[in-house]
Design a protein around this nucleic acid. Structure first.
Length: 780
DNA sequence: CAGTGAGCGAGCTTCCGCTTGACTT
């Protein structure tokens, strides 16, 4: 017999709370939602007022069984899921599934995991808020209807297995639209003029001309004026400014900062944060709130006063500005502010340090700065130089932490300007005019996409990372790094009385881990935008949220809201199925000069391809990585048909260059070798480089086998280090063992161990259910 | 692994948000 059963969403939370509550309380976790709409079918009975058809999720059967048994013998069941729409629904589903009785069921909520907060919650139970539950049901049903009615339209009109949804389709659209902005961007060349000057006291001042010169002639003319000009300090403007610390982390801002400062992907950030959370180092990592508990604010204050002094302390609470924030949790912060560092691997330590500093800084005093703006005029030209300097009067929070920005530019400004007074004459040292190009809008990174989605109110802290993974797995977008191309840049340098023209090389257009749309992403976005304008509208979610609020307030019935959306929506689905053309994104590029036939591109069964001619006597070629149907030229397309191409002989065997399913390759003596992605161009690779690749491949193959035993066991070198191969299966080697020292007996032992582990694993229902769920059908 | 792109039809795919492991060639 147990006295009290408390059910929360997260097991880590359960452990902590159990400690606070002590004897008489059994605290268990539901592991999130336990029930969902039917997995296979639509799961919504449209005929009967959109009645949802729920089933216990396959991976929750065991936990439901356990909770049922415990609930049966408990005197009181406390439903302590999160205080938001989803949490309320979880409580209600638990109530229904566990067949709880109203008289011994209590609903409690707390936003912070402290003893006081939990004891207070126990003192103030309430009932399940059915209106809030209904808002969740409406949200769930809406997403199901959109996803499961639009996706099949794509299967018929574009390609099987594609997906569409309220969140993912709009996320892809953001990437597609940005790519088109970039393609439409006309870059402009200009000259940026910078100079260094000396004061009478030989102190240096760096200054810049803020107006841009668009051509070389006017730039040269300006430099000519500089030759003979007198430079005079015209005006000095000094303004005090304050800088305020950023609020503590939410999921979104943590993902952004970890990406900028540590180079983490959003899913990596979440995985590391999960570890920190499980070890009790930080509070919950999926949150949209910037709120800190009183306890946290007090202990931050104590730490700041003790280590830095009282003048650095400024306790504050931040207001959440994010659209649709539900604020069921605190901001992400260290559990204990006096813990400046933790044990763990490098990533964990780095992320903890980031969270620690951000939290501490948020409770610190503003930084006091003084910004000085100096105008330096020329005696013979109207366009002045300006110099800016910034001096920190009081560093405040900057002592600890400084937020990074997406558009970090390397333009240096003077931190410190020498003492100047208006009328001072300055001595020109070097003046440089360097050629520059205006920059196209930046491509999204994973983290900046999350930021954009958050401002649009699309997606939730728990879904940002999975959504980005999904649209990559579906092939709508790719994360890629691209090497830019080298350009020769000119700079005009005025020194003494000479103007010298110098040339140097600079890389342009390099991209690091940026999001690019695929042809499929573009075709699907265009198709959906043409037929489902409302769902593809960036405001769709925000408007839906507004309607959900009315349901939560109890002023609108959830089925009414769904009905108003569904009927016109379903009409659109039907007419699109009936009337729209199959869409392959076909584009006519022109005519092939050799044959006079039409050259076009479209998405075929195996992806984007180019085609010469139609009907009989047609030739096909796959597009290369990095080529887009939208931007490929006729010449580039024709180039694809020059393969396979013989480039010579090596060891009396032909060397040919071809393009296959996995991109360009070298074929020699029936061996295939991939070209190096960024170095080798299939159109121009020389025999010499090809031979080098062949030799490299041979060398790698030689190194691949570390050892072969008589019974067929091999120790091989793989992408992730050494591993054991036996009977067509691979087995990992524990980090504690050196691969070279493995004996055949030890190998067999490891194989046995791994095999027995697998057997027990696949017996559990949990494991097999998972397998169906994730599988990005990519990779081979 | 590496040349593919017909057409038919069966049977499958798909959403968003809550939660963790399991699993890595």
């Amino acid at each position: 017999m147990i006295e009290n059963l408390v059910i929360v969403e997260s097991p880590a939370k359960a452990k902590t709370i159990e400690k606070f509550l002590g004897d008489g309380y059994t605290v268990k976790s539901s592991f999130g939602h336990i029930r969902d709409l039917e997995k296979k079918d639509l799961g919504v009975d449209i005929e009967h007022n959109f009645q949802p058809q729920y089933e216990i999720s396959a991976d929750k059967k065991a936990i439901v069984k356990e909770l049922k048994a415990l609930a049966k013998e408990a005197k009181t069941v406390w439903l302590a899921s999160d205080e938001d729409r989803e949490g309320e629904a979880i409580a209600w589903h638990l109530f229904e599934v566990l067949k709880l009785k109203p008289e011994n069921t209590k609903r409690i909520v707390f936003h912070e995991i402290t003893k006081d907060a939990i004891l207070y919650a126990i003192q103030h139970p309430r009932n399940i808020d059915k209106n809030l539950v209904d808002a969740q049901q409406a949200r769930r049903v809406l997403d199901r209807l959109v996803g499961f009615e639009v996706s099949p339209v794509l299967w018929k009109k574009v390609k099987p297995s594609l997906s569409a949804g309220r969140v993912q389709s709009v996320a892809v659209k953001l990437i597609v639209e940005r790519e088109r902005e970039i393609n439409a961007f006309k870059e402009q060349r200009f000259y940026r003029v910078c100079g260094t000057f000396n004061t009478q006291q030989q102190a240096q001042v760096k200054a810049e001309v803020t107006t841009r010169f668009t051509d070389k002639e006017s730039t040269l003319a300006y430099l000519e004026s500089c030759k003979t000009a007198l430079f005079k300090v015209d005006s000095i403007d000094t303004k005090p400014t304050v800088r305020k610390p950023a609020p503590p982390f939410t999921t979104s801002t943590l993902q952004q900062e970890a990406s900028r400062k540590l180079g983490f992907s959003v899913s990596q950030t979440m995985a590391v944060a999960q570890k920190l959370y499980e070890h009790g180092f930080i509070t919950y990592m999926r949150t949209d709130s910037v709120n800190l508990s009183d306890l946290a604010i007090r202990s931050a204050k104590a730490v700041i006063c003790q280590t830095l002094g009282e003048k650095y302390s400024k306790p504050r609470n931040f207001a959440t500005k994010t659209k649709g924030a539900q604020e069921a949790h605190e901001a992400i912060r260290p559990t204990y502010m006096d813990k400046t560092a933790i044990e763990g691997d490098r990533n964990e330590q780095q992320l903890y340090e980031l969270i620690y500093k951000r939290t501490l800084a948020s409770q610190m005093a503003d930084a006091q700065l003084e910004r000085t703006h100096v105008v330096i005029s020329l005696s013979n030209h109207a366009t002045p130089f300006t110099a800016t300097g910034e001096v920190i009067i009081f560093d405040g929070f900057l002592k600890v932490y400084m937020e990074s920005r997406d558009d970090e530019n390397d333009e240096e400004s003077n931190d410190l300007l020498p003492a100047l007074t208006p009328g001072d004459l300055l001595q020109r040292q070097i003046i440089t005019a360097s050629e520059q190009y205006t920059l196209h809008p930046p491509r999204y990174t994973e983290a900046s996409l999350v930021k954009k989605m958050e401002t649009l109110g699309i997606g939730r802290p728990s879904t940002y990372a999975p959504t980005i993974t999904t649209i990559q797995n579906r092939g709508y977008i790719m994360k890629e790094s691209r090497e830019g191309s080298e350009r020769t840049i000119e700079s005009l340098e005025l020194k003494n009385n000479d103007i010298q023209i110098k040339q140097h090389k600079k890389i342009f257009g390099a991209e690091k881990k940026k999001l690019f749309p695929s042809d499929m992403g573009m075709v699907v976005t265009d198709f959906l935008s043409a037929h489902f304008t409302d769902i593809m509208d960036y405001n769709f979610t925000a408007e839906a949220e507004e309607a959900l609020d009315h349901i939560a307030e109890g002023t609108v019935e959830w089925q009414k809201m769904i009905g108003e959306f569904y009927h016109p929506f379903h009409e659109t689905v039907e007419t699109t199925l009936k009337h729209s053309e199959r869409n392959s994104g076909q584009r006519i590029l022109g005519t092939d000069p050799a044959s006079g036939k039409t050259v076009s591109v479209r998405i075929g069964r195996f992806g984007p391809m180019a085609q010469i001619g139609e009907g009989e006597d047609v030739r096909y070629a796959s597009l290369l990585k990095g080529q887009l149907m939208e931007t490929i030229t006729l010449e580039e397309a024709l180039g694809l048909f020059k393969f396979p191409r013989n480039i010579g002989q090596y060891e009396d065997k032909e060397v040919t260059i071809g393009i296959g399913r996995f991109g360009p390759y070298i074929k020699h003596n029936n061996v295939f070798i991939s070209l190096k992605k960024n170095e080798d161009d299939p159109g121009s690779i020389t025999l010499e480089t090809a031979i080098q690749r062949i030799e490299e491949k041979r060398e790698n193959d030689r190194n691949k086998v570390i050892r072969t035993f008589d019974n067929g066991v091999q120790i091989l070198n793989g992408r992730f280090g050494p591993y054991i191969s036996y009977d067509k299966s691979n087995y990992k080697i524990p980090k504690t063992v050196k691969a070279e020292e493995l004996t055949v007996e030890k190998c067999m032992e490891l194989i046995e161990k791994e095999n027995s582990k697998k057997k027990t694993g696949s017996h559990s229902k949990k494991a097999s259910a998972k397998k169906e769920k994730n599988d990005p059908k990519k990779k081979s």
